[in-house]
Write a protein that binds this DNA or RNA. Structure first.
Length: 557
RNA sequence: UGCCCGAUAGUAUAAUGGUAGUACGACAGAUUUUGGUUCUGUUUGUCUAGGUUCGAAUCCUGGUCGGGCAACCA
C-alpha cells in the first residue's frame, strides 16, 4: 500500500479546494439533469457516475432533475426509463425534481428582470431576430422593440402567459449587449410561446422558459453547489452567471467536462431516435444500441459500466474511447461472476466408436472456476454421440492447431481424452461426422492415462442437447466515427446481428435466469434475452466474445 | 477570420517548477482440462518556435492543429 492514492480529476480538485475554503460550509450537492426526450446512453452513464460519485465521495447528495422545458419533445415514457436506468446502475437520488416545478418561480424571475429594465418583449420573427444578432465578427442591431417601457413589457409578458398570442408571435428577451463577442449574450431569448400540452403541467402554461433561463436558476433554486455539464455549454456560462447575479439568487457554479465518445457507435439522442424510428434496430433497448437499456439487454452489468466510467477519466479534452475498453470491463466482471456452461453454436456430429451406444454417463462441472469452491457444480450428461463446433476439426491443420484432425488427440471438457480417427463426408465432400475413440482411463478428475494433450474442446451430448436460439452481436457501424459521415446510416454494419436459430446447449442451461451472465466455454459471455426468451424457446444474447488469440494468430497469416 | 476551450505513447488519463507514470491495446514468454483467466517482461509519448529558470509537460509570448459558439433545442 505505498503511494496508492488515486489522483484527482480536475473537478475533484475544485471541490476539495472549495471544501478547504469552507465554501457553502463544505456542502456538496450535485444534480443529474436529463431531458426526458429519449433513453439514457453510455455517455449519460459517464455523467451519472461523475455526479453521483462526487456526492458519495464528498458526503453530499445528488438530485435527479428532469429538464422539461420543451413540451413538444418530452414524454412520461422517457421519465420512467431514465429513473429505471439510474437505479439499475446502482444510484439513488436525493430528490426527484422537475424544472416544470419551478415554472411559477421562473415566471417571477422574468418579471423581476423586466422591472429592472433587463428584459423586453420582442415581436420580431425568429428570422428577424437571427438576422439582428449579427455574426461572430459583426455586432448585432437592436430590433424596434428593444426600448419598450417596463410597463409595456410587463403587460405584454402577462398577456403572453394568458394566451393572447399565437406561437411565435412574441418572445421575451434579456437586454444585455448586442455587440458582445459571445453570441449567447446578444439579448438571448428567455421565453417563447408554445400552445402545447406538457407531460406534467398539462395545459396550464402556454409560455415556456428556454434552457438558458431555466437551467441555471433551477440549480440555484435547489442550492446546487457544483453544476456539472459538458463542454458545449462553456459559452453559456457567462449568461448563467449573469442571470444569477441580476436575480440575486444562490450562486451555483457551472463546470464543464468533455463528454464521452465511443468509436463504432453514435451517441446523439437524435441519431439514436432515427435508428429506432426507422427500424434499423429493434427499439431503444436493442442489444446493439449504446443505451443503458440496450447494454443491459446485451448482458452488461452495472458494475462493469460504472467501472468503465471510472477508468476513462474526466477531463476537458475531446476524446474518442475505444469500445475495446468497454469490452475489457465487461469481460473483467463476467470472468469473475459468470457460470460456465457448454453450448455448440455451429454443430457437427462426433461419434465415439468405442463407447457403448445407448450408454449415458453423468459428469460433473464446476459452475465458476474463478471462485473458491466453484460456486457449486452441475451435472452434464455424456454419451457416444456429441455435438462439437465445426471449427474444432480440420482435415489438414496448420502446425499449432491444438484441436481435432485425423490422428490428433484432445480432451473433451469435463470428460475424456479422445483420438480422432476419421471424418465421414457426404457426396459433396461436406463433413457429416467425425469418428473418434476415447481413452476410458482418462476421465476428468480420475485420469490415470498419463497422457497430456494440448487442447480441450467443449461439447454437448446429442440425445440430451437442448436447442436454443443464439444471437451474435457485432458493432453496429463499420466506421470508427459514424457521426462524421454525410449519412451515418450508410455505414451500418449489415452483419451486426447474426441469428443462430438452432444451437445446442447442455441441459442445465434450461435453468438459466434472466439478468445473469453465462460463459459458454470457449465462445463468450451470454445472457438470456429478457424480452423474448421463453421456457419453450430459449433465446441467448451474446454479450461479448472471449479474447481470442488463436483467431488473431490465424489472421496474421 | 470575432470570442471561447483544448493539445502528454495507438486510445484514454496522471505528474500542480525537480526521475514522464498508470490503464487498455500491441508484442514476447510462463502457467492452464476454456487458444479464456492469471503471472512476468518488452515496446511506444510531452504539437511547434522562442522566452523565464539552476531546472519547464507544467509559467510567459508567438504560431500550428483540433473542437465549440450566430435553434422560439437541451
Amino acid at each position: 500500500m505505498l503511494n496508492d492514492e488515486k489522483s484527482l480529476n480536475f473537478i475533484e480538485e475544485i471541490i476539495e479546494e472549495d471544501i478547504r475554503n469552507g465554501k457553502h460550509g463544505g456542502r456538496v450537492l450535485t444534480r443529474f439533469p436529463p431531458e426526458p426526450n429519449g433513453y439514457l446512453h453510455i455517455g449519460h452513464a459517464k455523467s451519472i457516475v461523475l455526479n453521483f460519485g462526487l456526492a458519495q465521495k464528498y458526503m453530499g447528495k445528488t438530485n435527479l432533475r428532469f429538464d422539461d422545458t420543451n413540451p413538444v419533445t418530452e414524454e412520461t415514457e422517457y421519465v420512467e426509463s431514465i429513473k429505471n436506468d439510474i437505479k439499475w446502475l446502482g444510484f439513488q437520488w436525493a430528490e426527484e425534481l422537475y424544472t416544470s416545478d419551478y415554472f411559477e418561480t421562473l415566471y417571477g424571475y422574468a418579471v423581476k428582470l423586466i422591472k429592472k429594465g433587463l428584459a423586453y418583449v420582442d415581436d420580431s420573427s425568429s428570422e428577424e431576430i437571427a438576422a439582428s444578432k449579427g455574426t461572430p465578427t459583426e455586432p448585432g442591431k437592436p430590433t424596434p422593440y428593444r426600448d419598450r417601457s417596463v410597463e409595456e413589457n410587463l403587460r405584454l409578458f402577462a398577456e403572453m402567459r394568458e394566451g393572447k398570442y399565437p406561437d411565435g408571435a412574441k418572445v421575451l428577451r434579456a437586454k444585455i449587449d448586442l455587440a458582445n463577442p459571445n453570441m449567447h449574450l446578444r439579448d438571448p431569448l428567455l421565453y417563447r410561446i408554445k400552445h402545447a400540452h406538457h407531460h406534467r403541467t398539462g395545459n396550464k402554461w402556454c409560455i415556456y422558459p428556454m434552457y438558458d433561463f431555466a437551467h441555471g436558476q433551477s440549480d440555484s433554486i435547489e442550492n446546487i453547489t457544483h453544476s456539472i455539464c459538458t463542454l458545449e455549454f462553456i459559452p453559456h456560462r457567462p449568461l448563467y452567471d449573469w442571470l444569477i447575479e441580476q436575480l440575486e439568487i444562490f450562486p451555483s457554479k457551472q463546470y464543464e467536462f468533455a463528454r464521452l465518445n465511443l468509436n463504432y457507435t453514435v451517441m446523439s439522442k437524435r441519431k439514436l431516435l432515427q435508428l429506432v424510428n426507422e427500424k434499423y434496430v429493434d427499439g431503444w433497448d436493442d442489444p446493439r444500441m449504446p443505451t443503458i437499456s440496450g447494454l443491459r439487454r446485451r448482458g452488461y452489468t452495472p458494475a462493469s459500466i460504472r467501472n468503465f466510467c471510472e477508468r476513462i477519466g474526466v477531463a476537458k479534452r475531446e476524446n474518442i474511447i475505444d469500445v475495446g475498453l468497454l469490452e475489457f470491463c465487461i469481460r473483467e466482471d463476467l470472468n469473475q461472476t459468470a457460470w460456465r456452461r457448454m453450448a455448440v453454436l455451429d454443430p457437427v456430429k462426433l461419434v465415439i466408436t468405442n463407447y457403448p451406444a445407448g450408454k449415458t454417463e453423468t459428469l460433473i462441472g464446476e459452475n465458476n472456476p474463478e471462485v473458491e469452491g466453484g460456486e457449486g457444480e452441475r451435472s452434464i450428461p455424456f454419451s457416444n454421440e456429441l455435438w462439437i463446433e465445426r471449427e474444432d476439426f480440420m482435415e489438414n491443420p496448420p502446425k499449432k492447431f491444438f484441436r481435432l484432425a485425423p490422428g490428433l488427440m484432445v480432451r473433451l471438457k469435463h470428460a475424456y481424452i479422445i483420438k480422432c480417427d476419421e471424418a465421414v463426408k457426404d457426396s459433396e465432400g461436406n463433413i457429416t461426422e467425425i469418428r473418434c475413440t476415447y481413452l476410458p482411463e482418462s476421465k476428468s478428475g480420475e485420469d490415470t492415462s498419463g497422457i497430456k494433450v494440448k487442447g480441450t474442446i467443449h461439447w454437448v451430448s446429442v440425445p440430451h442437447a437442448k436447442t436454443a436460439e443464439v444471437r451474435l452481436y457485432d458493432r453496429l457501424f463499420n466506421v470508427e466515427n459514424p457521426a462524421a459521415e454525410e449519412n451515418f446510416k450508410l455505414t451500418i454494419n449489415p452483419e451486426s446481428l447474426q441469428i443462430i436459430e438452432k444451437a445446442y446447449a447442455e441441459p442445465d442451461l434450461l435453468n438459466a435466469v434472466p439478468g445473469k451472465g453465462y460463459q459458454f466455454i470457449r465462445k463468450g459471455y451470454f445472457t438470456l434475452d429478457d424480452q423474448q426468451s421463453t421456457p419453450d424457446h430459449l433465446v441467448f444474447n451474446r454479450t461479448v466474445t472471449l479474447r481470442d488469440t488463436w483467431v488473431k494468430e490465424m489472421n496474421r497469416e
